[in-house]
Write a protein that binds this DNA or RNA. Structure first.
Lengths: 196, 196
DNA sequence: ATACTGAATATTTTGTTGATTATTCACTAA
DNA sequence: TTAGTGAATAATCAACAAAATATTCAGTAT
C-alpha cells in the first residue's frame, strides 16, 4: 500500500469515527485499529490528531465551497438570486451543523480554536467566490461598484452572522431565512445599477 | 431606608464588586456585607444573584444605548456619517469588552447565556434607534427605502459581527474598523437616493 | 532503508471529595 | 407588619488523584 493510500485510509476511518462519535471522543487507538495498525504508526502519516482533524475539516469545507461554486456558476439565476442562494446555502449549512449534525460541528469547533488557519482559508475561498459572483454580475450588466475586493469583503462581513453556529439558538431557521432575505435585498439594492 | 433605596444600595455594591472582581468571583456574602446586612436579606430585594446581575447589565446596556442615541440625535452629521459612527461605537464597545474590560464582560456573558431576554431587549432598543436614524434620514432627504422596519432589522443583522466578542480575536481593531467602514459604505449605497 | 510495533512518557480528561457559595426558612426585633 | 438574622440545605467549585489518551522512541522485521 502506498503512503498516499494509507493516508486516505486513515482519513476515511477518522471521518467515520468523528461523524459518529465526535472529534473528542475518538481516540487514536480506535482510528488505528480501524486501519489494522498501531496508534504509533499513525504518526508516520500525520503529526498529530489535530492534523487528521484538519485534513478532514478541509475536505468538509471544500465540499461546502463546491456547493457555493455551483451557485456562482449557475447561468439561469440573476446575480441577485445567486447572492441570495449563496447566503441561504451558508445559513442552512450552519444551522444544520448546530441542529442536526453536532458531531461534525465538534470538529469545526476544534479547528476554529486550535487551527484558525483552516477557517481563515475557507473564509478566503468564500470571498474569492463572492468576487467571482461580482465579476459575473458586472458582465451581465446587473451590479456596479467601485472596488471589487472591498465589496466582496464587505458582503462577506455583512453575512458573517450566518456563519456562526453560536448565534443559531437565538432565532428559528425561518427567522434566519427572513433575515437573510432582507440583508440580501439591502445589499442588492446597493449594488444594482437600477434601483428597485 | 425605603425598599427602593436598599435595592439601589445593593446594586451599587454589586457594581463595585462585579467590575472589580467579576460576576463569578463576587459572593452574595460580600455584596451583603458591603451593605451591612446578611446575605439572606438580599433575597428580600432580589430573587437571586442572577437578578442582581440583570439589574446591572440593564444599566450598562442602557448607557450604551444612550451613547448610540446621542449619535442618532446629532444634527451636524449626515445620515451616512451617523450610521458609520453608530457601527463604530458598537464595535469599539465590543472590542473594549473583550480586550480591556473582561471583568464586566463576564457579566454580559452570564446574561447572554442565562438571561437571554436582557440581550434581546437591548437588541430591540438598538433596532428602534436604527429606525429613528432611518426616519431622520428620510426627513433630511438622504435615504430612501420601502419598509423601514425591515430595513432597520436588515442593517442590524448586517452589523451583527460587531456585537460579538467571540469574533474579536480574529482580527485587529484596525481591521475591524476597516470592515465597519466598507460595510457601512455598501449599506449607505443601497439606502442613498443619489448613488455615489 | 521502509513499515511497523510495544512500551515509556507526557498530556488531558475524569472522578471524587471537601470546601465554598447560593438559597431557603424558621425565627427575632422594632 | 416590616426589616432583618443565623443556621440548615442545596448547588457549585476547586483541588487533587486516578485513569485514559496522545505522543515519542528504541527497537523488530522485511
Amino acid at each position: 500500500m502506498t503512503e498516499l493510500d494509507t493516508r486516505s485510509q486513515i482519513l476515511i476511518a477518522a471521518e467515520e469515527r468523528f461523524s459518529l462519535y465526535g472529534y473528542n471522543k475518538t481516540t487514536m487507538v480506535e482510528i488505528a485499529s480501524d486501519c489494522n495498525m498501531s496508534a504509533a504508526n499513525l504518526y508516520r502519516f500525520f503529526d498529530n490528531k489535530l492534523d487528521i482533524g484538519a485534513g478532514l475539516a478541509n475536505q468538509c469545507l471544500a465540499e461546502k465551497e463546491n456547493e457555493l461554486a455551483v451557485i456562482v456558476a449557475d447561468n439561469l439565476m440573476t446575480s441577485a438570486e445567486k447572492l441570495h442562494a449563496f447566503v441561504v446555502n451558508i445559513l442552512h449549512y450552519t444551522y444544520r451543523r448546530f441542529d442536526v449534525a453536532p458531531r461534525l460541528s465538534e470538529l469545526i469547533e476544534a479547528m476554529t480554536i486550535q487551527r484558525p488557519e483552516v477557517m481563515k482559508s475557507h473564509r478566503n475561498s468564500t470571498i474569492i467566490l463572492l468576487r467571482r459572483l461580482l465579476e459575473q454580475s458586472v458582465d451581465a450588466g446587473e451590479f456596479e461598484f467601485s472596488d471589487i475586493d472591498a465589496t466582496a469583503e464587505a458582503i462577506n462581513t455583512a453575512i458573517t452572522v450566518f456563519y456562526l453556529p453560536a448565534v443559531m439558538p437565538l432565532f428559528s431557521l425561518e427567522e434566519f431565512e427572513s433575515k437573510a432575505k432582507s440583508v440580501c435585498d439591502l445589499l442588492v439594492n446597493g449594488l444594482s445599477k437600477i434601483k428597485t
